[in-house]
Design a protein around this nucleic acid. Sequence first.
DNA 1: CTGTATCCGGTCTGATACTG
DNA 2: CAGTATCAGACCGGATACAG
Lengths: 119, 119
Amino acid sequence: MDTGDAFDPNCPTRLVLDRIGDKWSVLVLLSLADGPMRFTELRRRVGGVTPKVLTQTLRAMEYDGLLTRKVFAEVPPRVEYTLTELGRSLHEPVSAVTQWAEQNVGRIMGSREAIDHAQ
Amino acid sequence: MDTGDAFDPNCPTRLVLDRIGDKWSVLVLLSLADGPMRFTELRRRVGGVTPKVLTQTLRAMEYDGLLTRKVFAEVPPRVEYTLTELGRSLHEPVSAVTQWAEQNVGRIMGSREAIDHAQ
DNA sequence: CTGTATCCGGTCTGATACTG
DNA sequence: CAGTATCAGACCGGATACAG
């Protein structure tokens, strides 16, 4: 059992959290876990994300080595996003959290009443 | 294997991510996993968090049922934060992610060069 | 010790429109 | 289809000072 090691600004936990802790990355990761996907399909799957923000998220994840972007020189243009080995390996721990979410969503919601999350 | 179910605004994944996906909640959860803790110790453990923000985080997590806040009627005042059963159960999947982080931090950093995460 | 009040700025996120 | 440009707002998170 690791004790709390996790709290100087450089610790791995922090670094990773800063990358996948944004609003859309995890959702993208989850979608892509089903296989390679094109921009528009990804957009539909994630739901509610604008093209700009989806592009930002995708670029960041690409630079982080979580996915690759393959452009096909075709008409009409086609771009496919694929999880890297690293991305796939991250999918497992992340899906552990989402599975927890599905089981406990009732509980976590029940106790909220008249407060915004953090403000 | 669950396919992507996760993408209407009401899906469990989204709801939970909106709660623990902020900057400090996970760090607090990890700290508290070692046992009950007082405000100041928590603050030291988490590192770099201001009292205001820590209070916000703590309150939100309390309302979400992840931890309890016990006030001791003493002088000087003492307040202890303890993970609930729910909070402890969340610790497992979350620590799966942080363990992944520790193993792969080198990889995820290596590919970043000249881009901010998402802007 | 354990917070709260106020002020404040940066960042994330989004709507909309437009391009190759 | 797959983005980019621009504009703008909301919110998160922080500094500082103060209170019970």
